[in-house]
Amino acid sequence: MSRPWLCVLALAAVPLSAYAIDGEALLKQVDRNLNPPTYEAYRKIINIEPNGKRREFVMFTVKKDRDKVAMLFLSPATEKGRTTLRLGDNMWLYIPNVGKPVRITSLQSVVGGVFNNADILSVDYSAEYSVERVEDAGAENLLHLKAKNRTVAYDRLRMWVTKKSPQPTKIECVTAAGILVKTLRFKDIKDFGGITRPATVETDSPLQKGYRSTMIFANVKARALKDEVFTLAYMPKLDTLQ
């Protein structure tokens, strides 16, 4: 083979070898940069309707490991005291007057608006998605994610992640047919005292024109939690963790 061709091949190989990124490891790093393995946080969800009307929900959330999430509604008064629990693919809703948990699905929404239960009770991305490929998108990496099974809310995600201290800046949620159903935008990087992550997540959907929802994080901090907190028996007592 002639030397010029060898040089061309060598030059072409350099970016390819430099770009042999372990996508799965990168996704796990994204998960850890977003949240510690076990933590508590307060969140506010603001749903904005096309006419400008706002509805706000304040929640207390605890999460452990990859797929255990529990949440307590603090306001408004009509929802106060309700709790939700997620264990892997299982989700439940507890309403104090009803007095017992009932199963709910990831595609429903306990708060209405653009966020659904899968977005609100989100688990580690690496628990639900595998990385198909990673693209160099300039200042960011673009991860192409595929759901690990059919129970996951979205069939595919396109996740833009900063190269330095990997965190998502945008996620597009896509159906199996390739239809964009939702875009999540991560903003306002904030130091919560040991955890530096986006404090704001905004979302909109081409399927819900004119509707926008925003999730704001506050008081995110690591916290040791027992597995028993993430059981049906603990759902009526979640307020004792505050």
């Binding site: 307060y42 096309p50 400008g52 008081n219």
Partner: peptide, 26 residues
């Protein structure tokens, strides 16, 4: 117009909303 006002209103989170009291009435 409501849509413009809504779009410009800032999303805030006042931490006094999450202060827990030992006694609650509902």
């Amino acid at each position: 117009s409501p849509s413009f006002v809504g779009a410009q209103e800032e999303a805030t989170f006042d931490l006094s909303e999450i202060r827990k009291e030992p006694t609650t009435i509902g």
